[in-house]
Design a protein around this nucleic acid. Structure first.
Lengths: 118, 118
DNA sequence: GTCAAAGGTATCAAATTGGTTACTTTTTAG
DNA sequence: CTAAAAAGTAACCAATTTGATACCTTTGAC
């Protein structure tokens, strides 16, 4: 069994990594289909997306709902347990915004403008 | 120049990775020497510790103070900018504690008891 | 029949991260 | 003269993470 030297390591195990916080930040905005998440995160591959979503589901942070139809439809949303991360996620988002403002006078230089999701 | 799809990525660039949050959590408790940090993080190697500390210093989150004496003494502490992360770090720590409590009835099973620092 | 749709696997390759060992520096203690 | 102390660097290798590409499934439209 995994052991921690300090409890915060347990949190990092759940939301650490390159993509999980980003995924969760998008899910705060509401339930999302796989394809919507892919549009919101142009840099992620299908493989990484699926993998990260599976791990978050495993940790009971998100819910995966499969609609039995063709073509398939799958929606992801935060569980109650996932919502307990909201404070952390919000703080991270706004810290990130301030960090950009502090270091990049024109934030347009570093923020890729999101393309509207038609 | 690095580009972000969403501002939270900027925060992850500063405090992401396996060690940085842990280091910062220890520095919240106060200024620490390199050797103290090593004791607090038995799993980290000198190399990784130095590397992560340099990056945090580069991002202006921690301060490195070298005392000109032999044997050398170096102390690390949070900068004002680093303190702006306190809320996030505190929340992460307590979420980690709750996560352990929720998933491990005996938290002794997963928490390596810290050895007293001599 | 065959293409498209959405979501997902499988396989392999590349990049990033982490670990090991040896070496450096300076001054004091023995 | 030699060892020790604290912090660090360099070179090299191993492990983990992440990425790219191709392929699979089901059913309705053309």
């Amino acid at each position: 069994m995994k052991k921690y030297n300090i409890p915060v390591e347990a949190a990092l195990e759940v939301i650490g990594g390159k993509w999980k916080v980003v995924i969760l930040c998008h899910l705060i905005e509401g339930k999302k289909r796989t394809s919507e998440l892919k549009k919101l995160m142009p840099g992620i591959t299908q493989k990484m997306l699926t993998q990260q979503l599976r791990e978050l589901e495993e940790d009971n942070v998100i819910l995966r709902e499969v609609y039995n139809q063709v073509p398939p439809k799958v929606e992801y949303s935060l569980t109650d347990y996932g919502w307990s991360l909201k404070g952390i996620l919000d703080s991270l988002c706004s810290w990130g915004e301030q960090h950009i403002e502090k270091n990049h006078p024109n934030k347009e230089d570093v923020l890729i403008q999101p393309q509207s999701i038609e």
